[in-house]
Amino acid sequence: MKTQKKNTWAIFWAVLAMLYFFVPMLGTFIFSLRMKRGVLSFQAYQSVLADSRFLESFRYSATMGIITVLVSVLLLLPTVYWIYVKVPWMRPAMDIITILPFVVPVIVLVFGLIRTFGRPPFQLTLTTFGTDILMTAGYVIITMPYMYRAIDVGMRSMDVRTLTEAAQSLGSNWFQVLTQVILPNLRIAVLSGALICFATVMGELILADFLVRPALGSYMAGIGRSKAYEPAALAIISYGLTWVCLGLIQYFSRGSQEQQLTGR
């Protein structure tokens, strides 16, 4: 009887949460189908997909996403590895340092980046290439807390030191150890960090908007000011995109669990 009562409450909250999740989503979806008067159609989607600026900004953001992931992994993977193998006493400090990007809100970061690098001696904002460097750096900073944690968690779950020593005793050098032993074992951790990283870059507005680069975020903001149905379609598309990224993370990490089970 008692458990029954408890379950009623649990179901109440669960249903409420599901309504909160689904009503805006469903509302948006149906709204997005109403571009043509009187009938439901995918015209809003066609209109979005036919817009060359959409495709351009999508390509730009995707490219930036991939570059960000690469830079981030190149920067953080050796760093975390080094910490585990050489200076484990730095780990608590690193935990705090990598949380710092949370402390500096993106808008403040952009403000600082523009005022620092937009002036001599750097003047990076003068060229698109320079601006893109600034964008990438900003993205790497913003996504650092996720990426660092993902790699850190992955590293923690294996005995890095022993693996390294074993590989070295078999004649590998540092680079080989990192690429042939550590990285394959960290595949899943790096991948899930990368996907979150990518999803974040794809949805990001502030950096692109203030550095005036044609990213998906600023494209969407522009559309939102001028059109009615296309934004709804865009919201659904970006829902789908986030969904795919998270779905992939879940898919890959499930695979890793099975591996672990059979490995034992």
């Binding site: 948006t28 997005s32 979150i196 709804a232 829902y239 986030t242």
Partner: peptide, 26 residues
């Protein structure tokens, strides 16, 4: 969905709410 929604913010979120609860929303 918690994983999805916690990562779903920014401009698209605003669009979704406008399409649902805006003046002409669903």
């Amino acid at each position: 969905f918690s994983g999805l929604a916690a990562n779903f913010g920014g401009v698209p979120l605003a669009f979704a709410f406008i399409a649902t609860l805006g003046r002409t929303g669903f």
